[in-house]
Design a protein around this nucleic acid. Structure first.
Lengths: 273, 273
DNA sequence: TATTATTACGTTAGGCGTAAAGATT
DNA sequence: AATCTTTACGCCTAACGTAATAATA
């Protein structure tokens, strides 16, 4: 009967080249490896090696067997990983979001609704959020595109609009300026609130010539924003104190992507309805 | 450590519903299954069942674990199957062909070239031939389309052209008839040499209104052809005795597919060059 | 009472390490 | 002499079956 322990010795031998080295790295005796290789041939029912007196090497069949052994081991590793993360997802209510604002809005209601379970949350790339929900790694995800997949429920959650906040004398402001497009902002350095989240990703994409400056320490954005002559972005979901807007003008940003709709996704309907 | 034997007991339990039935079908004692299920929970490191006093059932995590366990078992079965068939392909020189004529032409040279190995050959569907070569199940394949895939070599082998052989007074023959198209033949019953092979497939496709009649016993085609008033197909690679053509006229068949080019494919260049 | 899961216990077989032998470079 | 594979031998663990227990329907 094929056996995962033996399979691992088998592929390790393929990587090490000699039985002795294999025994070394696996912390077992050399005879153990010899026996395992013999039993692999019995299990597969075919010859897997060419043997000379003090040398044993894979033949073509052996190399094929190694390939397939790797697949079995990968399947086993995958099984452990997936089952454990699912179990953990049942214990800990995990939320991944592509944006901080939507997460902040959602969390309080989750804390109330699932007061019996610890809640962990994380800002992550949109694609990873979707994947995590797909694979039961997290209970609820927040993304910016509607999702229509079997076994995954989706509903609209909220919208958020981008504004730019500039010092009154900033060169981008002309007399008649009511709003600014990404093209107009592109090239002007901007202070960002966070290194992660959908807005940051968007700025990297739409403002290629702009240098995005991040707070030196996490959480020091407000302080730095007050002292800085740089423009910064805010949204209609802004949670900063009013003081950062002193001496500044806030203008809407126009162009594709400046208004985002967030969607909640989950494999469990009750989690998002 | 995850173990294939235990995994099989695990998925069998999922199919049987009770530990006792599982023990029965697997021919082991009930305590063995109890212990295995306990050790599965240890291996995965999570709870997989809900237990009442004399009832044990899968929970959600358990059902997920069963899914993944099936994948591991499938990977293991696949490995055994593939490695064994590859080993066999090294011992026995296996040829699969979509047509008998090309096989007949190829076999003698193979017998000479690989006189140290037994040769087995088979007529099969074109797609299965290609798949067999891809998966190392056979050494050489004969198909009718050129193939360009990594790791598979291909070369042109021979061509074969289709003719129809009719009794002199057959209604399909007019004064000026020099050839017949599939459209003209379609609807007329025809005696076929074999139930397998590319020509038979082609006739099924191009002569939907025709009833194809096969020899009652394999190998009795020549005998039946002499006595029959039906037309039959031959090719320029015909190997039947001249006697079957007595009192008959042989006309070329026209139309797409009436001339076929055969290609040899193999994962080993030397096998076909 | 029949069925089911679990625990306890004694036995056994299989797997491991040590030691040694045989062969190669 | 050092390295490598294989065989032989003894030990010990881990897995099995039997028997018994407990609970349910």
């Amino acid at each position: 009967m094929l056996n995962l322990d033996e399979l691992k010795q088998f592929v390790t031998f393929a990587e090490m080249g000699t039985l002795s080295k294999t025994a070394d790295v696996l912390h077992v005796s050399q005879p153990t490896i010899t026996r395992t290789m013999q039993s692999m041939e019995e299990d597969f029912g075919v010859s897997l090696f060419t043997r000379s007196k003090n040398r044993i090497e894979f033949n073509d069949t052996g190399r094929l067997a190694v390939e397939y052994s790797r697949k079995i081991i990968a399947a086993a590793d995958d099984a452990l990983k997936m089952v454990r993360s699912y179990d953990s997802s049942l214990r800990i209510f995990k939320v991944k979001s592509c944006a901080a604002s939507a997460l902040s809005l959602l969390l309080p209601s989750l804390v109330q609704k699932f007061s019996d379970r610890p809640i962990s949350s994380e800002i992550s790339l949109e694609e990873l959020v979707a994947d995590s929900v797909r694979h039961n790694i997290c209970s609820v995800g927040i993304i910016t595109k509607s999702m229509d997949e079997d076994g995954v429920f989706c509903r609209e959650f909220m919208t958020e609009k981008l504004y730019i906040c500039l010092p009154k004398e900033h060169e981008l402001i002309k007399e008649t300026t009511q709003s600014l497009s990404f093209e107009e902002i592109n090239g002007t350095d901007v202070l960002m609130e966070s290194e992660r989240g959908i807005w940051t990703d968007l700025c990297y994409e739409r403002l290629p010539r702009t240098t995005l400056r991040f707070p030196k320490k996490t959480g020091s954005f407000e302080k730095e924003a007050k002292d800085s002559p740089l423009p910064f972005f805010v949204t209609d979901r802004n949670t900063n104190s009013d003081s950062i807007f002193k001496g500044r003008i806030t203008l809407p940003v126009t162009g594709e992507g400046s208004e985002i709709t967030y969607y909640l996704i989950s494999r469990d309907k009750d989690y998002i309805m």
